[in-house]
Computed example of a mutant assay.
Amino acid sequence: MHTTNSPHEATNGSHPGEPITQRVVLAVANRADVQVTELPPLYDFLDPDALNAVVRSNAADLELSFSFAGYRVTVESDSTVHVRQES
Protein backbone atom coordinates (compact mmCIF):
# COMPACT_ATOMS: atom_id res chain seq x y z
CA MET A 1 0.00 0.00 0.00
CA HIS A 2 1.04 3.59 -0.31
CA THR A 3 0.25 6.74 1.55
CA THR A 4 -0.61 9.92 -0.27
CA ASN A 5 -0.84 13.49 0.94
CA SER A 6 -3.37 14.28 -1.77
CA PRO A 7 -6.93 14.95 -0.59
CA HIS A 8 -8.12 12.44 -3.18
CA GLU A 9 -6.77 9.75 -5.40
CA ALA A 10 -7.75 8.80 -8.93
CA THR A 11 -7.18 5.56 -10.77
CA ASN A 12 -7.64 6.00 -14.49
CA GLY A 13 -9.00 4.02 -17.37
CA SER A 14 -10.59 0.66 -17.72
CA HIS A 15 -8.82 -2.58 -17.08
CA PRO A 16 -10.31 -5.31 -19.28
CA GLY A 17 -11.93 -8.02 -17.22
CA GLU A 18 -11.58 -6.16 -13.92
CA PRO A 19 -14.96 -5.17 -12.48
CA ILE A 20 -15.31 -1.56 -11.40
CA THR A 21 -16.27 -2.78 -7.94
CA GLN A 22 -12.84 -4.38 -7.55
CA ARG A 23 -11.17 -1.16 -8.66
CA VAL A 24 -13.25 0.84 -6.16
CA VAL A 25 -12.31 -1.41 -3.25
CA LEU A 26 -8.62 -1.36 -4.21
CA ALA A 27 -8.63 2.44 -4.60
CA VAL A 28 -10.23 2.95 -1.18
CA ALA A 29 -7.84 0.47 0.44
CA ASN A 30 -4.89 2.28 -1.12
CA ARG A 31 -6.18 5.69 -0.01
CA ALA A 32 -6.86 4.41 3.52
CA ASP A 33 -3.51 2.57 3.56
CA VAL A 34 -5.16 -0.68 4.67
CA GLN A 35 -5.56 -4.17 3.30
CA VAL A 36 -8.71 -4.84 1.27
CA THR A 37 -9.78 -7.37 3.90
CA GLU A 38 -9.83 -4.60 6.52
CA LEU A 39 -12.63 -2.75 4.70
CA PRO A 40 -16.30 -3.51 5.24
CA PRO A 41 -18.05 -5.31 2.38
CA LEU A 42 -18.94 -2.99 -0.50
CA TYR A 43 -22.43 -4.53 -0.62
CA ASP A 44 -23.13 -2.94 2.77
CA PHE A 45 -23.04 0.43 0.95
CA LEU A 46 -24.48 -0.31 -2.51
CA ASP A 47 -25.41 -3.11 -4.88
CA PRO A 48 -22.11 -4.18 -6.53
CA ASP A 49 -23.89 -5.85 -9.46
CA ALA A 50 -25.81 -2.65 -10.19
CA LEU A 51 -22.60 -0.58 -10.09
CA ASN A 52 -20.87 -2.98 -12.50
CA ALA A 53 -23.90 -2.89 -14.83
CA VAL A 54 -24.10 0.91 -14.88
CA VAL A 55 -20.41 1.28 -15.69
CA ARG A 56 -20.56 -1.48 -18.35
CA SER A 57 -23.46 0.36 -20.01
CA ASN A 58 -20.92 2.91 -21.30
CA ALA A 59 -23.26 5.77 -20.44
CA ALA A 60 -21.85 9.04 -21.69
CA ASP A 61 -21.09 11.67 -19.05
CA LEU A 62 -21.53 9.19 -16.20
CA GLU A 63 -20.59 10.46 -12.78
CA LEU A 64 -21.74 8.29 -9.93
CA SER A 65 -20.82 9.16 -6.33
CA PHE A 66 -21.38 7.21 -3.14
CA SER A 67 -19.96 6.79 0.36
CA PHE A 68 -17.86 3.76 1.20
CA ALA A 69 -15.98 3.13 4.45
CA GLY A 70 -15.61 6.82 5.31
CA TYR A 71 -14.61 7.86 1.79
CA ARG A 72 -16.49 9.59 -1.01
CA VAL A 73 -16.05 7.58 -4.20
CA THR A 74 -16.83 8.97 -7.64
CA VAL A 75 -16.84 6.78 -10.74
CA GLU A 76 -16.75 8.46 -14.15
CA SER A 77 -17.82 7.17 -17.58
CA ASP A 78 -14.21 6.31 -18.52
CA SER A 79 -14.00 4.13 -15.36
CA THR A 80 -11.85 6.66 -13.51
CA VAL A 81 -12.31 6.20 -9.77
CA HIS A 82 -11.82 9.20 -7.47
CA VAL A 83 -11.52 8.67 -3.72
CA ARG A 84 -11.52 11.36 -1.06
CA GLN A 85 -11.95 11.17 2.67
CA GLU A 86 -15.32 12.37 3.89
CA SER A 87 -15.22 15.20 6.37
Rank of each mutant, 00 (worst) to 15 (best):
Gly13Tyr: 02
Asp44Phe: 06
Ser77Gln: 13
Thr21Ser: 14
Glu38Asp: 15
Asp47Val: 04
Thr21Phe: 06
Val83Gly: 00
Pro16Phe: 14
Ala53Trp: 04
Tyr71Asn: 07
Ala60Leu: 14
Val34His: 05
Val36Glu: 09
Asp33Gln: 14
Asn5Glu: 14
Val24Cys: 02
Leu51Phe: 11
Ala27Ser: 14
Val81Glu: 02
Gly70Leu: 10
Pro16Asp: 13
Ser77Glu: 14
Leu62Asp: 04
Leu39Met: 05
Arg56Pro: 00
Ala32Cys: 12
Leu51His: 06
Thr80Trp: 00
Asn12Gln: 08
Ser6Arg: 15
Gln85Asn: 12
Leu42Gln: 08
Ser6Trp: 14
Leu62Phe: 06
Val55Ile: 10
Val83Gln: 00
Tyr43Ala: 15
Leu42Pro: 03
Thr80Met: 01
Tyr43Phe: 13
Asp61Val: 08
Ser79Cys: 07
Glu9Ser: 11
Leu39Ala: 06
Glu9Tyr: 13
Asn30Gln: 14
Asp61Cys: 11
Glu9Trp: 11
Arg84Asn: 06
Thr21Gly: 12
Thr37Asn: 11
Asp61Asn: 15
Val83Asn: 00
Pro48Ile: 04
Val73Ser: 03
Val83Arg: 01
Gly17Gln: 09
Glu9Met: 15
Glu38Asn: 10
Asn58Asp: 13
Ser14Pro: 09
Gln22Cys: 09
Ala69Val: 02
Glu18Thr: 13
Ser14Trp: 10
Tyr71Gln: 06
Asn52Ile: 03
Val24Phe: 02
Asn12Met: 06
Ala59Phe: 07
Val54Lys: 13
Ala69His: 10
Leu42Glu: 08
Glu86Pro: 00
Gly70Thr: 09
Glu9Gly: 03
Ser65Asn: 03
Pro16Cys: 07
Thr11Tyr: 11
Leu51Ser: 07
Gln35Met: 07
Leu39Tyr: 07
Ala10Gly: 00
Ala27Asn: 01
Arg23Ser: 08
Ser65Ile: 01
Asp47Met: 03
Val75Tyr: 02
Val54Phe: 05
Gln35Cys: 04
Glu9Pro: 00
Gly17Cys: 07
Phe45Ser: 04
Asp61Ala: 15
Ala60Pro: 06
Ala53Tyr: 07
Asn58Gln: 13
Arg31Tyr: 15
Val81Gly: 01
Val81Met: 03
Thr21Ala: 07
Glu38Thr: 06
Leu39Ser: 04
Val75His: 03
Glu38Trp: 04
Val28Asp: 02
Arg31Ala: 08
Tyr43Ile: 10
Asp78Val: 09
Leu42Ser: 07
Leu46Asp: 02
Thr37Pro: 00
Pro16Gln: 13
Ser65Tyr: 00
Ala69Met: 04
Thr74Glu: 03
Asp61Gly: 12
Tyr43His: 14
Ala53Pro: 02
Tyr71Arg: 04
Pro48Trp: 05
Ser14His: 13
Arg72Thr: 12
Leu64His: 09
Met1Ile: 12
Glu63His: 12
Leu46Arg: 11
Leu42Cys: 08
Tyr43Ser: 15
Ser14Thr: 11
Glu86Lys: 08
Asp33Trp: 13
Phe66Gly: 07
Arg84Ala: 12
Arg84Met: 10
Ser77Tyr: 10
Val54Asp: 06
Asn52Trp: 03
Phe45Thr: 01
Ser77Cys: 09
Val28Leu: 02
Asp49Tyr: 05
Val24His: 01
Arg56Leu: 09
Pro19Val: 08
Val75Lys: 02
Tyr71Ser: 05
Asn5Arg: 15
His82Met: 06
Asn52Met: 03
Leu39Gln: 05
